[in-house]
Computed example of a mutant assay.
Amino acid sequence: MHQDNPLITFEREGAHITAWTSTSSTVASEDSNRDRGYGYLTAPLRRRGLEVTVEYGLSDYIVHAALPDGSSLIISPPQEPPGDDLESWTVVRHREAGPAVYEEIYDSEPSGPDARHAGGIPNLLAAVHAGLDQLGVPPLPEQQRSSRERAADAVLHRAGFIAAVAFSGEQYHQLPSAMTDPSEQRRAVTRAFTTL
């Protein structure tokens, strides 16, 4: 693939089909090792201009983001006891020096106020972004899309896909949720694939 050509990836999850557009065929980078599998959390924070690290906590990795006011944002899965799957998250803003700050932004542990969301990433990111907005952190910048990406978007639209934006800010397309007939879905994907 030429570096300027967008890569379109079709993905089926249950009855839903999604088309992801990216400008590079290699998703893995030096950040993937540094981010310890938490790229879905670190990428949106970095796009907002924050310095982000992934550090080892008590029993699992945590995401640490330095905020402009000198405080820090800590995003953490359960630390004690360690678990293999991420069934809950906590997000805390804190500062030890100067005027001390300890503010719970999100808690989806079983006894927490956000327990109904459990380990769900969309609600976690929505809470993080809302907290950053309240602190005056600049919003996610609009992604600059190349003319080839815009052309791919138009092809997907003509094939029946609808444009959407993920909580991370990444743009994608999906077939309408009412389109559940497998043969109709196949025709739409084939139409998009042939034109692309």
Rank of each mutant, 00 (worst) to 15 (best):
G131D: 04
D35S: 05
M179S: 05
H16W: 14
Y102V: 10
P81C: 08
G70T: 07
G98E: 06
D84S: 13
A43P: 03
E96L: 15
D181W: 04
Y56N: 07
S32R: 10
R158A: 07
M1K: 09
P139W: 10
R150W: 03
T9E: 15
A28L: 14
V165C: 14
T21I: 15
A164C: 13
P122K: 03
V128P: 00
S147I: 12
L125G: 02
T190Q: 11
P44G: 04
S88R: 07
Q171S: 14
T42M: 03
R116A: 13
A178L: 10
Y61A: 15
A65L: 08
D4Q: 09
R191Y: 07
P138I: 02
I75A: 04
G14F: 04
S108P: 05
M179R: 06
P122T: 05
A154G: 07
S72I: 08
T195Q: 11
E109C: 13
D153H: 09
Q79G: 08
L73F: 05
G169C: 06
D133H: 06
V165P: 05
P99H: 11
Q3I: 09
E104D: 12
N33I: 12
R158L: 02
A15D: 13
H2A: 13
Y56H: 09
G120K: 08
N5M: 11
G83N: 15
L86Q: 13
L156A: 00
L156Y: 00
A97T: 15
L125Q: 04
G39Q: 08
T53Y: 05
L124K: 01
S147Y: 11
R12L: 05
F10N: 00
I121C: 04
T90A: 13
I105T: 04
R116V: 11
G160C: 03
L135S: 09
F167P: 10
R145G: 06
R148M: 15
P44V: 01
